[in-house]
Each structure stands twice: as C-alpha cells, then as structure tokens.
Design a protein around this nucleic acid. Sequence first.
DNA 1: CGTATGCTTGAATCACGTCAACTGATGTGG
DNA 2: CCACATCAGTTGACGTGATTCAAGCATACG
Lengths: 248, 248
Amino acid sequence: MSDTGHPHRIQLIRQGMVKHVAPHHWEELTPLLQEQRTYPSNTVISTRGSTLDHSLLLLDGIVARSIPRPDNERSTFVALQFRGDFVDLHAFPLKQLDHDVVAVTPSTVAVVQHDALKKVLDGNIEMSRTLWSLTLVDASIHRHWAMRNSAMRGFARVANFFSEIDARLCAATETYQDSYTIGITQTDIADATGMTPVHVNRVLKDLREDGCCSISNGHLQIIDRDRLHMRGDFDPAYLYLPGSEAPL
Amino acid sequence: MSDTGHPHRIQLIRQGMVKHVAPHHWEELTPLLQEQRTYPSNTVISTRGSTLDHSLLLLDGIVARSIPRPDNERSTFVALQFRGDFVDLHAFPLKQLDHDVVAVTPSTVAVVQHDALKKVLDGNIEMSRTLWSLTLVDASIHRHWAMRNSAMRGFARVANFFSEIDARLCAATETYQDSYTIGITQTDIADATGMTPVHVNRVLKDLREDGCCSISNGHLQIIDRDRLHMRGDFDPAYLYLPGSEAPL
DNA sequence: CGTATGCTTGAATCACGTCAACTGATGTGG
DNA sequence: CCACATCAGTTGACGTGATTCAAGCATACG
C-alpha cells in the first residue's frame, strides 16, 4: 500500500502552494519531512473519522478529498490537491478527519508528524500564521467548488473545473503548458463536478468540438485557454496563487 | 447602514461555536469587542475584493457568505452564519475577502479589530490554535455544502439543509426547539441550495406533506426531526458542534 | 484467452428550470 | 382614503438539461 523511502532521497520542491512559505521558514520545515510514501492510483490514504497524528506534503500525483454519498455506491470529491499542496494540514489543529483522502493518480507524499510540527510552530507565530493561511486557501477553494457545482451548468462547470486544474498545475510546475498528463478518468471528473460519467463524456465532447480543450487517456490538452476561461467564467483570484497580486 | 452602540451595552454570549473557546481564553477575547453594529436584512456587510482590518462576532441574526453568479442577476450562498459564529475570522490571516458578506435577516455583530487580536494571539499559541480550528470548522461545513449541492436531489438537499439549520440554531441557543423564527425567504433557500425559487417552493410543499417540517413567513417548524434527518441523510459530525464527541 | 475497466453513443425518462399568471401582504404618495 | 407599486409566495404549462438503462468497443491484465 505504501512505500517508505530513505530520508535523504526526498526531493523537496518549493513549488505550488508551499511557495507561500517564506524561504527562511521553509528551512525550518524541511527537516521535518523524514518519511516518503508512494500510493498507487485509487487507494485510500486516510479514512474519515480517523484521528491523524501527521499531515502530508504532496510531492507528486493528484489526491482527492472525498465524501461518500448516502447511497454509498460512489463518492463526491470536494477538493483536489496537486504537488506542492499540504494535504490534511487542517488535521493539525482539528485532528479528526471528516472526509476520506484518496490518491486519484499514483502519488508520492512526504510525512510531517504533528508533534514535530508543533515544536516548530510553538516558537514561531509567523510561520504558524502562514500555515493557517494555507488551510484558509483550501477553504476559499471549497467555497468556489460549492458555487461552481451549485450555480453553473454542465458545460461551464467542466470548463471552469479544467481552468482551475490548468492554473494550479501551472503554479505547481512553474511553467505554462499546453498539455498535462494528469491521468484522471471521466468518472473522477464526474465525482468532482457532481455529474454522471455519461454526461461528463458528452460535455467533454462539446468542449472538444468548441475548441476549448480535449482530454483523452488522462491527457489534458488546452487548445484555447482564453476561450476555456470565457466558457467557464474563470477568475483565478480565489486560488490565491503564489505570485498573484493578492498576497497571503 | 450600521448602528454603533456603546461598548458596555454589548451582550456577550458564549454560546454556539465560540463555546469552543475556553473560558480563560474567552476572558482575554471579550475586551476586544468594543463596537457593536446592527444591519437591516438584505444589506451587504463586506464586499469581496476588499481588504479587512477587522472580523465580526455574530450576536444575533443570520449572515450569509455570498458569491455573485456569472450572470450577476443573483448570487450563491456558500455558507450561513448564526449567533455565536465568528464571521470572517479567516480574514485575519488572509486579509483579502473572496466573497461578499450579507445580512440575510436583521443582524447584530460585535467588531474585533485585527491589530488588537494580533496582540492577544501573538502571546497565546493555544488560543491562536483554537481560532485556527474555528476557521477549519467553517471549511468542513464548506465541504459538506459542496457535497450536498453536488450529490443530493432537491428533496433530500433541502431536508439536509434544514437539518443543519436546526442543529446549529439549537447549538446557538442551547435549547432544543420545535420552531424557529429565522426570517429567510424561499429565494434565500434557493441561493443556498443551488435551486430555483420555484422549485424550492415545490420541495417545501413536499416536505410539509411528508410530515418533516413546514416553513411559512420565515418561521421554520420541525414537525418530525427524525424523519427530517432520515430524508436528508443527516449526520451532524461535520459541524463539530461544541459538546459533541468530536473535540477540537 | 476471458474478465475488468474506461470510453462512447442512443433512446427513454425525469428532475428541474423557465415563463407566466395570479394571489396576498406591505408600503408609499397624492 | 384609494391607487399604485413592490415583493414573497403559489401554481400551471412547457421546455430542457441531466440521469438512467443499455449496448458496443476498445485496451489492459492475470
């Protein structure tokens, strides 16, 4: 299930959301990352209801926060995490987990033990507040997801969803790309957008024919970024991306 | 727009979510509440994009966090706040506001200036973490709203929504009631559940005829709480209510 | 090989949205 | 006081976006 690697082999990237952590704080943080784990796709990393004594820094892959549906046949994704994201950092103050954490694609994480983190943060109000901010950005994204899945129709909804993935992956890799190998299935997209896989399939076809983007074999290609943003009414402000005008 | 009251007239209730704040911390916090404001229903308290130097403690009324829709004709509610909730506490670390804050019903708030709060929190890691937790409970509720509006059908969705209101108002007033005067309109419910006002009206009729609850003139009556919870697949764990088994 | 998983498409159905008309309550100004 | 406007709620008729059920087709895998 999980593959433990040697401490010295951890590749510590300061890209994506963790870039909000100032360099001199980052130096205090990295020694805490002593364990590395790898999960194959479609595996549960943490289950809801459980108590966590650690959080994860996502090094590679895509991880979803997932809430099982009442019927228990499928589940709903309420958030996606990309490389450079702190996964379950909110479990540090809250301990109890209210949702599942699932590796959507093969994923690699670094483990941060809460007691070690506590020792560092207890003496460092400033960094403490930065990490607080990181969890609040998650909250901002949650709000956007609630809005998107409540107020937008299928076509615009998926367009907005891909715009977000594009923007976040761009921030995570620090290069603008026209195509990404993300390896998520249409069923995953359905879980994230609150639609059926069948309808997702049809919307994807519409997006392709409209010249926005195309996705096949887990390979997302942005054909016309401006058009995609327009169709999805996309405004990345809610992402608080590092480097954008809105500071943390 | 806002009515400023005298400092000594503020009625400080330690009910609802602020009950998570320990009594000895509460004593440090209350001196910060020096100003009281009252807003009539349907008024904007803070607009998105603006920078906040204060947060609000909701003393009475119902306040919504609202994101304008692309068409700009209506807006979507992504959260509701009740008495005892910290409104916009997340603006303390984040400063920038990504959504509007609107008084849904006539509301009274107490103002907490961020610089005063900072002085208290800088020397108090423990309370700092409690307030961090409070914002994370908001995030948990956001996740639930995303799930609810993505995965549940109209009938169950509204049932779940009312179950939440019931549970939170109960926690806010510390008495189990069969009816509440909440004063929200069917259009408000529509904005919160991602439905049209017309369809909300029909669902409310179904809920009434099913013997769950009835709402008229902003007056919510719980007819059969167990039935309501069943219909809405309601499990209050995500609310982290004070006094429940899941501690902060 | 056979079986599982993901993608694609069609046809039928349904939940929900849209448009519109009507009611009742409240409020305002002449 | 009445005429008029406004807003919340209610209901009907109709249209459509989305789900459901189903079949077919790939590719991957033990």
